[in-house]
């Protein structure tokens, strides 16, 4: 549904900024009805790619096809089947919810009974129905996001692009937003491409694209990406990390990695994790505050892939994220 072919984009230099290449030879495809997450550190080129996909920026080279239409030559036709949710609200906060939806309908040429039905459908899942007369600046952050989504769904897009749509939302509103998005996406067999920094949002995606420094580092299903990191990890929080790390090396011939107060042991096969945990626990129980087996999360995959690229010279660094524990023995 979305075919990105060998896209490169270089920003022209200005007096203050030199010429800068934001995307280099990027290609991937998103199939019809797929939910695809686009991710990457800040400055990875995903915003540039997003602008290109929206048709706001014309890339230096390469082509994009959306729904079989060429974005450069048939941009008007592409816009008819495209819905976009921007990171910044694209509504007028001085107008009411209903007025904003009406303007949006006018821009897309919907009216009459058809519009009424579309409105009903676009609002059916939301809590906006009783707020139609309220000005947008009186809505909570979560409701304002619902309006953005409802507005985009009004036109029944075949392809929906979202740019970090959950930024600034509290966890409950974020979960609600994503549940609705995923449900509507499945019901309508809509193709969705969403950029995000939050990896829990990507866990049930069909595909995850990871970009860095303008390159596509990975494009795969979450399952296969996790398998790429492969191993489970035993995470130990000891009373004295340095001393225990030393003994794990000498006593058990292991290779612990230390992150602050925490030691991590990579386990080659999943079946080995529990025996290893038991061995460590039996031997050093008094020195251990907690121990857990952690399955690789997409976040770990992201860190590993982007830092591997870093080692290979693709730029930028990362902080260690907090681990998400599967089981904890106190």
């Amino acid at each position: 549904m979305i075919i990105i072919r060998d896209i490169s984009h270089t920003y022209p230099g200005t007096r203050k900024q030199p010429v800068r290449t934001a995307i280099a030879s990027l290609s991937f495809q998103v199939g019809r009805g797929e939910f695809c997450i686009l991710s990457g550190p800040n400055g990875s080129g995903k915003s540039t790619l997003f602008r290109i996909l929206c048709g706001l920026t014309i890339p230096s080279t390469g082509s994009v096809t959306i729904g079989g239409l060429d974005l450069a030559r048939e941009s008007h036709a592409v816009r008819r089947i495209l819905g976009v949710v921007f990171q910044n609200p694209a509504v007028d906060k001085h107008l009411s919810v209903g007025e904003n939806l009406a303007i949006h309908a006018d821009l897309y040429g919907h009216r009459g009974a058809d519009l009424a039905q579309r409105l009903e459908e676009a609002l059916s899942w939301s809590e906006l129905k009783h707020r139609m007369g309220d000005r947008v600046d009186t809505l909570s952050g979560g409701l304002a996001r619902q309006l953005e989504l409802a507005k985009s769904l009004l036109t029944r897009p075949k392809v929906l692009l979202l740019d970090e749509p959950t930024t600034g939302l509290d966890p409950a509103s974020r979960r609600n937003f994503l549940e609705v998005l995923r449900r509507v996406q499945r019901e309508r067999n809509m193709t969705v491409l969403m950029t995000t920094h939050i990896f829990s949002e990507a866990e049930d995606a069909d595909h995850v694209a990871i970009m860095k420094g303008g390159h596509l580092l990975a494009f795969d299903t979450p399952q296969r990406l996790r398998a790429r990191v492969g191993n489970e990890v035993v995470v130990i929080v000891p009373t004295d990390a340095v001393s225990l790390a030393g003994r794990l090396v000498t006593d058990l011939n292991l290779a612990p990695l230390r992150f602050g107060d925490e030691l991590r042991l990579d386990v080659a096969a999943a079946a080995d994790s529990l025996p290893l945990l038991e061995t460590v626990l039996a031997r050093y129980r008094p020195e251990i505050r907690s121990i857990a087996i952690k399955q690789p999360a997409l976040e770990d995959v992201f860190i590993q892939i982007t830092s591997a690229a870093h080692a290979a010279g693709v730029q930028e660094s990362h902080r260690i994220p907090p681990a998400s524990e599967k089981e904890i023995v106190q």
Binding site: C54, A77, V84, N88, A90, V91
Partner: peptide
């Protein structure tokens, strides 16, 4: 700045 224009620019209007 606030984004309303982005929404108009991606809509199928000349």
């Amino acid at each position: 700045d606030q984004g309303f224009l982005q929404g108009v620019l991606v809509a199928p209007v000349p």
